[in-house]
């Protein structure tokens, strides 16, 4: 694709405040930040060197030099601050912050919320703060984070509600096992605060976040391997439509990565037989088992 003169002009305009506020940066780092090659950056800088304010004497020109791969910008003229966020850009930032707010632990949410309001006030006050909202599927997201923690070998930071003591604590845990029971999903994990293996009820985890600390490996740890499930269903099934980004179509079947068994089991139940899990056997069997158990509730005399 040929870059237009205008697109390049914007890069040049953006380069000045970037160099001004990042003194001593290397050409390589500048190129990475602007997503172009080093030789393109050198050409850009050669051109910038000729730009300036009317008059165009050395006093009015942008002054910069490259020495040993290091860029120094001595005089930015009036391009010392980056371009302001447009209304659309600011609205996109608000969307991203709203999503972030959902994902962070309770204790950090307030900051993001305040920041979101600040973006509304400063850049897009014609679109009220409450016009943008982001609500994720809490249960599904939690299961996904737990799976990510196992597959990446990273610890989780959880906000845990102990229902018997009704107290809320923040803990760092290293997941060893996910135990789906008929009435609840349990997470077995090494808990740093307790210095031992503890079992947590997923429903009582108010927030779950991956943190950049390697999991503590315990002897009982069995890494769960992510496998694919094979599903059969019509194209216009609700589950198929809602998850179509994660599905891979193979003739008349659909393949999906299993991050956590229980989510797929429950989804199959909710579809009431319109979605068939062909394999793996353990999921298929669990769907049949839970459906059978549920039926008993209806056959018992009241």
């Amino acid at each position: 694709m040929v870059e237009t003169a205008a697109a390049r002009a914007i890069r040049l305009i953006d380069l000045v405040p970037f160099l001004h506020n990042n003194p001593g940066i290397t050409l390589r780092e500048v190129a990475d930040q602007f997503n172009v090659t080093v030789s393109e950056i050198v050409k850009d800088l050669d051109l910038l060197f000729m730009c300036g304010l009317p008059g165009y004497t050395p006093l009015e020109l942008i002054d910069l030099s490259i020495d040993d791969g290091i860029v120094s910008l001595r005089e930015p003229q009036n391009l010392d601050s980056p371009r302001r966020f447009s209304q659309t850009e600011a609205l996109l930032i608000r969307v991203a912050l709203a999503a972030l707010e959902e994902l962070l632990p309770d204790s950090k949410r307030v900051k993001v919320r305040v920041l979101r309001e600040k973006f509304t006030r400063l850049f897009t006050d014609q679109v009220p703060n409450e016009a943008i909202s982001f609500a994720s599927d809490a249960e599904r997201t939690k299961l996904k984070v737990v799976s990510d923690s196992i597959s990446q070998g990273k610890k989780l930071l959880i906000t845990y509600l102990n229902p018997t003591k009704s107290e809320v604590t923040e803990r760092k845990i290293s997941v060893t096992r996910v135990i789906p029971e008929s009435h609840r999903t349990l997470i077995e994990a090494w808990c740093d605060a307790s210095n031992g293996i503890r079992t947590f009820n997923l429903a009582n985890m108010k927030s779950v976040n991956l943190i950049d600390e390697d999991s503590i490996r315990t002897t009982s740890a069995e890494a769960e391997v992510i496998t694919k499930a094979i599903l059969r269903s019509s194209e216009d099934n609700r589950f198929i439509r809602e998850n179509h980004a994660q599905l891979e179509k193979r003739e008349d079947r659909f393949l999906i990565d299993i991050f956590q068994d229980e989510w797929l089991v429950r989804s199959a139940l909710a579809e009431g037989g319109e979605l068939l899990v062909e394999s793996p056997d353990r999921i298929r069997a669990r769907v049949a088992f839970l459906a059978g158990e549920s039926l008993k509730n209806y056959s018992k005399p009241d």
Binding site: D14, P17, F18, N21, K144, N209, I211, D212
Partner: peptide, 22 residues
């Protein structure tokens, strides 16, 4: 890029690795 062009540098809360959600 523009956030990195301000006089104040962003300080990312390093401890967080966010799960990938759509």
């Amino acid at each position: 890029r523009r956030i990195n062009s301000l006089a104040v540098s962003p300080l990312t809360p390093e401890e967080f690795r966010l799960s990938e959600i759509n």
